[in-house]
Design a protein around this nucleic acid. Structure first.
Ligand SMILES: Nc1nc2c(ncn2[C@H]2C[C@H](O)[C@@H](COP(=O)(O)OP(=O)(O)OP(=O)(O)O)O2)c(=O)[nH]1
Ligand SMILES: [Mg+2]
Ligand SMILES: [Mg+2]
Ligand SMILES: [Zn+2]
Length: 580
DNA sequence: GCCGTTTTCGGCCCGACTGTTTTCAGTCG
C-alpha cells in the first residue's frame, strides 16, 4: 500500500526544517508554500500518494514542484532534496532547532562559528561560555538557551495534545483568569477554537483595559513551570510538564480583530491580510484600517471585518485556507449549522447498559430540559461483551419506555439499540426481534484490523440492513489511541446515500467521527445524510452536542443534510422509510 | 514554491518580546 497522508506530511515537515536551514530564515516564501501544502493534505480525505501528478496540482497550494516531491516520496520513500540537504546539515541540527528560541539563523551560526551541530556540542559550548562570544548573543542569551534545552521538542508534532485534554486545560485556565481584576472577556482561540484534532498549545484571548495586570496574574497561575516570555500585551507559559499556554490581551474595541488574528489559522490570516491589501486596507490584530488614512474600518466584531472584506462571516472551524475564502466569496460555503437547529439526539445510553451512568428517566428529563423534540434510546445490543443487553432486558427497557411515554408529552421517544457490526457485517438479534425496535444505530466495536475490503463490506452490509438507521462512529477511531478502521469511503458514502442510512457525526471529543476531511468529501461527492449524536452515557454528556455541531461545521455539512434538524414528521418519515 | 476579473513575472501579513544593539535581528504568535 502507498504511504499514508500522515507520512507524506511528516516527510514534507522534514523538508520544511531542512529548507529553513538552506534558506537561512524561519519564514521564507517557499517554506510557507510547503506549509500550505501540508495544510492542504491534512484537509484532504483521499490518499495523495494514490493521485496522479495532474490530480495533485489540482489541489490548492500544491504546484508542480511539491506534487513531484510527493510522488517521489510515494515511490521511493524519500525526497531527494532532503537527502541532499542532510549532507550539508546533519539531522542533529534539526534537533537543535527543536529547542524553543533556536531558529535557523542561530543554528547555522552555531555550526559556522563553533562547529556545534548537536545538543551535546551545544551543552559543552555553553559550559565553556562560548555562546556569549557570538555576534548578537550575550550572557543572557546563553543562559536562556541553556534553560531552553530542557524544553526541547515543546513545539514538535509529537508533543501535540489531544483536543479533549486541551479543552479541559483551557477551561481550567479560563476559570482561573476570570476572576482577575480588569478582565472583561475571556475565551480560547487558536486551533482549539477551530476544533483541530490535535492541539499544539492553548491560546487564550482576553479583553481588558490594562494588559499588564492580566499578564501578571497569568504568569503566576498555579502549575506554571516556565515563563517563555511576558510583556504588556501577551505572555507564554508552560504548565505542568510540557503544556504551553499563550495569552493575548487587547482592548475591548479590538475584540473582533484580535479573535480573528488569534483564531487563525496562520494561512487563513495571511490570505485575509492579503485580501485587505488588495482593497487598500491593512489587517492586524487591532483593526482593519485604511492603508492611507489609517482610519479604522472595522474592529469590534468578526462579522464587521469579514463584511468589509466583502465576505460573509466564516465559522472558526473552517478557517484553514483550504478553499473556504473563495467558497465564501462565491456563496457556496454552507451556512454554518447552529446547535439550536437540532431537535433531538439519536445515540443515547442509559443505566440499562453497564456503561450508562444515568437512569432512563433522568436521561429523558434532561432531554426535555434541553428542549429536545425527539430522542432515540440506544443502549448496547447483546453482542457487546459486558455491557450488551439480552433480548429479555431489551424488552424490559421497552416496557419502561412505554410506561414513561405519557409523562413526556413533548418528547417523541424511540426505542432503539446500538447494534454491533460483526466481523461479517451482520448485527445482533434475530430479524424478527429487530423489527420490534423503532430505531437502530449500528457501530463497529470489534475487529479494527481487517483489510480495507473486509471493513468496507462490513459497513456496506450494515448500511443495507433495514434495521439500521445510522452508522455510529463510522471509523471507530479513538483520538490519541487508535486510528480507526480503514475503508473505501467513497463506496460507503455512495451506499449510504442511496439507502438513506445516515452517517454519524459523533460529538465526543475523543471520537469526532466521521473526521472533518471525510465529512467534507462526503458532502462534496454525494447526497448522504448525517446524524449528530452525543453517544451520551450520562446526562452531563448531552452538552457534548456542541462539539458534534462544530465538527459538522468543520466538515462543511449544511443543516439540511442533518437528520437531527428535520421537523418531527419528516424525521419520523425518514426513520420509517428505512425500516420498511 | 505558488499563483493570476490588476499579473504567467513579481509579488508574497504583520506585530510582540527579547537581547543586543545605538537602530535592529531573531524568534515566535
Ligand atoms: N498573522 C499571523 N498570525 C499568526 C502567525 N502565527 C500564528 N498566528 C496566529 C494564528 C494562529 O492560529 C494563532 C495561534 O498560533 P499558534 O502557533 O498557537 O497556532 P494554532 O493554535 O493555530 O495551532 P497549534 O495547534 O497551536 O499548533 O496565532 C503568523 O505568522 N501570522
Ligand atoms: Mg495554538
Ligand atoms: Mg499559540
Ligand atoms: Zn454508543
Amino acid at each position: 500500500m502507498t504511504p499514508s497522508n500522515e507520512s507524506v506530511m511528516a516527510a514534507l515537515r522534514e523538508l520544511i526544517s531542512y529548507t529553513k536551514l538552506e534558506d537561512g530564515k524561519s519564514q521564507s516564501f517557499r517554506t510557507r508554500a510547503y506549509e500550505k501544502a501540508v495544510d492542504a493534505i491534512a484537509s484532504n480525505a483521499s490518499r495523495v500518494c494514490d493521485m496522479t501528478l495532474a490530480e495533485l496540482t489540482e489541489i490548492d497550494g500544491i504546484g508542480d514542484s511539491t506534487a513531484r516531491k510527493i510522488l517521489e516520496f510515494s515511490s521511493t520513500g524519500e525526497i531527494a532534496k532532503v537527502e541532499r540537504l542532510k549532507d550539508r546539515f546533519p539531522p542533529s541540527m534539526i534537533e537543535l532547532m527543536r529547542i524553543p528560541g533556536l531558529g535557523p539563523k542561530r543554528v547555522l551560526l552555531l555550526q559556522d562559528s563553533l562547529q556545534v551541530v548537536d545538543v551535546e556540542g551545544l551543552t559543552r559550548a555553553i559550559e565553556k561560555q562560548q555562546l556569549r562570544t557570538l555576534p548578537g548573543l550575550g550572557e543572557k542569551s546563553e543562559e536562556k538557551i541553556a534553560q531552553a534545552i530542557s524544553l526541547l521538542g515543546l513545539h514538535s508534532d509529537d508533543s501535540r495534545m489531544e483536543i479533549a485534554d486541551a479543552m479541559e486545560t483551557a477551561h481550567r485556565v479560563i476559570s482561573e483568569l476570570e476572576s482577575v481584576d480588569g478582565v472583561l472577556t475571556i475565551e480560547y482561540a487558536g486551533s482549539l477554537r477551530r476544533l483541530s484534532e490535535t492541539i499544539g498549545d492553548i491560546d487564550i484571548l482576553v479583553t481588558a483595559d490594562s494588559g499588564s495586570l492580566v499578564v501578571e496574574a497569568f504568569v503566576n497561575l498555579p502549575g506554571v513551570t516556565a515563563i517563555l516570555g511576558s510583556g504588556t500585551t501577551k505572555a507564554s507559559i508552560v504548565m505542568g510538564d510540557r503544556v504551553q499556554v499563550d495569552l493575548r490581551v487587547v482592548p475591548t474595541e479590538s475584540l473582533g480583530a484580535a479573535l480573528m488574528y488569534f483564531t487563525g489559522s496562520k494561512a487563513h490570516n495571511i490570505a485575509l491580510r492579503t485580501r485587505a491589501i488588495e482593497r487598500g486596507m491593512t489587517l492586524n490584530e487591532y483593526s482593519l484600517s485604511d492603508v492611507n488614512s489609517g482610519d479604522v474600518v472595522a474592529a469590534k466584531t468578526e462579522a464587521d471585518i469579514y463584511a468589509k472584506l466583502d465576505l460573509p462571516w466564516i465559522a472558526p472551524e473552517l478557517r484553514e485556507d483550504t478553499g473556504e475564502i473563495s467558497a465564501a466569496e462565491n456563496g457556496t460555503l454552507p451556512a454554518p449549522i447552529a446547535q439550536e437547529e437540532l431537535r433531538g439526539d439519536l445515540h443515547v445510553h442509559t443505566s440499562w447498559s453497564g456503561d450508562g451512568r444515568s437512569s432512563l428517566h433522568d436521561m429523558l428529563d434532561a432531554a426535555v430540559e434541553l428542549g429536545m423534540e425527539f430522542i432515540a434510546i440506544t443502549d448496547h445490543a447483546e453482542d457487546l461483551v459486558m455491557n450488551g443487553l439480552s433480548e429479555e432486558r431489551m424488552l424490559g427497557q421497552r416496557r419502561e419506555i412505554e410506561s414513561l411515554r405519557p409523562s413526556y408529552p413533548t418528547l417523541t421517544i424511540l426505542h432503539g439499540a446500538e447494534l454491533n457490526i460483526g466481523r461479517d457485517g451482520s448485527i445482533d438479534y434475530s430479524p424478527t426481534f429487530l423489527d420490534g425496535f423503532d430505531f437502530g444505530v449500528a457501530s463497529i466495536h470489534s475487529y479494527f484490523e481487517l483489510s480495507v475490503a473486509e471493513q468496507t463490506e462490513r459497513l456496506l452490509a450494515a448500511i443495507e440492513n433495514p434495521a439500521v438507521n445510522v452508522i455510529g462512529h463510522p471509523s471507530g477511531r479513538m483520538l490519541g489511541k487508535r486510528g480507526g478502521i480503514e475503508f473505501d469511503a467513497d463506496a460507503v458514502f455512495a451506499a449510504a446515500s442511496s439507502s438513506g442510512t445516515a452517517l454519524e457525526i459523533n460529538s465526543h471529543l475523543k471520537r469526532l467521527d466521521l473526521s472533518a476531511p471525510m465529512l467534507r468529501r462526503a458532502v462534496e461527492t454525494t447526497d448522504v445524510l448525517f446524524a449528530i449524536s452525543t453517544d451520551a452515557h450520562h446526562v452531563s454528556a448531552y452538552n457534548h452536542q456542541r462539539w458534534g455541531v462544530a465538527q459538522a461545521r468543520r466538515g462543511w455539512v449544511p443543516s439540511h443534510r442533518v437528520v437531527n434538524c428535520l421537523q418531527l414528521d419528516d424525521f419520523l418519515a425518514w426513520v420509517g422509510e428505512r425500516r420498511n
